[in-house]
């Protein structure tokens, strides 16, 4: 039981760690994708089939594309010259933001009552999952949907003003 978990943890954490240390941005993002795949494997191991596939579909399939696109469109050289932050202020800000995220996550993990037991969780069929989402968590689902729609519209507006300002044909 623990050996697969250890393997999955290794596959998830090592690429993430290496990704931070690498200078090559594309390699880092590919390793990040490997790490996401590891998380999907963890979901699969934990019996959450649906979440695992959704993780692969969304993160490995779609978010990875966005990341790679962003890297390709912003970088001029393949190899990043310097790894050092520009100023001490930026380094501090980075540390602060990372520490804040870590603190929130740690707090959430610590405050969640974790049931520890040898019994494996029962397999939840996708249909029940869907019904649960649509009945008990409708509000949350709708809120997330609206949030995503708003952000999408915002992105469209941001992208559209450019061409309108220049007066060029789309």
């Amino acid at each position: 039981m623990t050996i697969p978990f250890l393997i999955i943890a290794f596959v998830t954490l090592v690429p993430a760690a290496v990704a931070m240390a690498l200078r090559n941005l594309i390699h880092s993002s590919l390793l990040l994708i490997a790490s996401w795949a590891g998380i999907a494997a963890f979901y699969f191991w934990a019996g959450a089939e649906f979440v695992a596939f959704a993780q692969v579909l969304v993160y490995v399939g779609a978010v990875s594309m966005i990341v790679l696109f962003a890297v390709l469109l912003t970088r001029h050289t393949r190899i990043d010259a310097g790894l050092a932050p520009d100023s001490i202020g930026r380094a501090l800000a980075g540390l602060l933001a990372g520490g804040a995220v870590f603190g929130v996550l740690l707090g959430a993990v610590l405050s969640t009552p974790l049931r520890v037991g040898a019994k494996a969780a029962a397999q939840v069929p996708v249909k029940r999952l869907g019904l649960e989402l649509m009945n008990h968590h409708t509000i949350a689902l709708l809120a997330i949907g609206i949030l995503l729609t708003v952000s999408l519209l915002g992105a469209v507006v941001l992208a559209a003003t450019d061409s309108k300002g220049k007066g060029a044909t789309p």
Partner: peptide, 8 residues
């Protein structure tokens, strides 16, 4: 999910 990874 498996198919999406192929473009990667």
């Amino acid at each position: 999910a498996a198919g999406a990874a192929s473009e990667l």
